[in-house]
Write a protein that binds this DNA or RNA. Sequence first.
DNA 1: CACCAGGTCTCTC
DNA 2: GAGAGACATGGT
Length: 254
Amino acid sequence: MFRYHKTESGYKIFSKNLFCGLIYDNDHVIMSSNQPDYFCHYFDLRRDYGSIKQALSGYPNLTQALEFGKGIRILNQDPAETVFSFIVSANNNIPRIRQIIQKLCDKFGEDMGAYRAFPTASRLARASLSQLYEAGTGYRAEYILQAAGAIRDGFLQDLSKMDTQTARKHLMSLKGIGGKVADCILLFGYHREDVFPTDVWIARVYEKYYAHCGQCTREQMALELCKLFGNLSGYAQQYLFYHIRQTQKYNKYI
DNA sequence: CACCAGGTCTCTC
DNA sequence: GAGAGACATGGT
């Protein structure tokens, strides 16, 4: 999600220790990878998004977002990479998130020849606080270190067996992981569809289109939106997020 | 030089 | 449990 580079004709994308190139050619995309099966799953290519969009079209205030984000797919990312990435994302902007993650790869990732892998949890667990500060993580350095140790010791081992709410609480027991980050990890790392990551942008959407209570917290918004969208929550969130994020200012970053 | 960024933590009451 | 402030860092 945060490890991609635009090229003349497409994108270079990195996940874990793997690489994938995308070339846009008229109406189709050519994928080349050292691990095509992995990236078919990564891009969620086997899923029928047409029926998801059809189901979502019955909901209020989504028509425009569905059209705007017609090519959206929910990525299946590596769970550990997702944990570290979204710890970094908190109270941060996208260019800097990408920069920090790049530096973490440069400093701690395995050398794959043409690029560096995302660092493993056990490698990050052996990093020093000052090394993590050097990567620009700031006050999140200790969160990363703690999460790295926990994951190395099996923290994520049983997560896929837990129901969503149990898994969410489990993730939130780590410092640096609150409700929003936990929901992102569940959505992008475990493809849990019954979460609604609620950040500043979704909060704005909520207040504009879906507000039921006058003054409610992000947690309450997420709960209400989940109740409304059920197992389509994760998808609805992505369409709404992408739409507002691209059409409201700050789109200079992309 | 303030203010902000895909929030969370830590204190209070 | 709800409500303020702090929080590294880099960009505007």
